Simulated scan of single mutants.
Amino acid sequence: MRRNSFRDIKSELERRISRRVWEPGETMPGEEALAAEFGAARATVNRALQELARSGLIERKRKSGTRVALHPVREARFAIPLVRTEIEASGSAYEYRLLKRAVEHAPVWLQERFGLPAGAPALHVRCLHLADERPYQYEDRWINLAAVPAAGSEDFETASPNEWLVANAPFSRAQFSFGAARAGSEEARALDLDPGEAVFVAERATWIAERAITYVRMVHPPDHRVVTWI
């Protein structure tokens, strides 16, 4: 009989966390129980749990056991920032405006990037974050409703998808990219810039196991700076 490897166990535990078999903050079965369930050595289970802890999905503490992280996204190696926190930490007043919310068929480029079937439903949200009433970030986001169905019932009128996803959609891997671009007509209008003016662009995509969660394009005025601590 084939024995489960630590990768098999890690993948299955990721799946259970993504499907909310264990809710955020809930204590998971111990190593001994998991070893018995998967027919694996306790050391193999331990390695799988270590990998999940490093990705930020779970928290492990001696004597108190292992639990699903309450805010797993923020425990990842590269933290997903909250735009509200960024702005308020700078001493500015935060404001949020929803510009668009619609369930649409995922466009072809998103299907190809995320491996989605033709006609897959996706939530398309466009919004604007402001600092002291000045445009700070234009957010153009797609959410895979097959991976995060609860997002379909959120109106995002008063709270941004950035905040909601950090609290409700843990991820196990992500891809980040940063670069300069020229503002498109809608981006320029939202950011109060001239069309074609230089902008700073950050793009991010996240997955839980092999299931894509979200893709977001974040466009900032040309004077924007990214500061991070390691």
Rank of each mutant, 00 (worst) to 15 (best):
I230F: 14
E12Q: 14
S90G: 02
L13T: 06
R7A: 10
A183W: 01
N168W: 08
N4L: 09
A102H: 07
A41W: 01
N168F: 04
Q137A: 10
R173G: 03
L57H: 05
S172F: 14
A159R: 12
A183L: 02
S64A: 13
R204Q: 15
V103T: 14
E210D: 15
I58G: 01
R62E: 05
S90E: 07
R54V: 09
V148I: 11
R3T: 08
P135W: 03
L128Q: 05
A40N: 05
R77H: 13
E51D: 08
K61P: 00
R141M: 05
G184C: 05
D192P: 00
C127V: 00
R77Q: 13
D132T: 03
I80V: 15
M28I: 10
Q175V: 12
D192I: 00
L49W: 05
E59V: 15
A181F: 03
E59P: 03
H220K: 05
R134E: 10
G25W: 04
S160A: 06
V227M: 14
R20I: 06
A159Y: 04
Q50M: 09
I208S: 15
A36T: 11
Q175E: 09
N46M: 03
F178I: 00
P29L: 06
R3N: 00
P170W: 12
W229S: 05
V108I: 08
S55G: 11
R54S: 05
E203A: 15
V226Q: 10
L128Y: 04
K10I: 05
L98R: 08
W207T: 06
I143A: 02
G184Y: 01
R54K: 14
R42E: 07
V201S: 04
E154F: 08
E23T: 09
G196Y: 13
H220V: 02
R182T: 09
G65K: 04
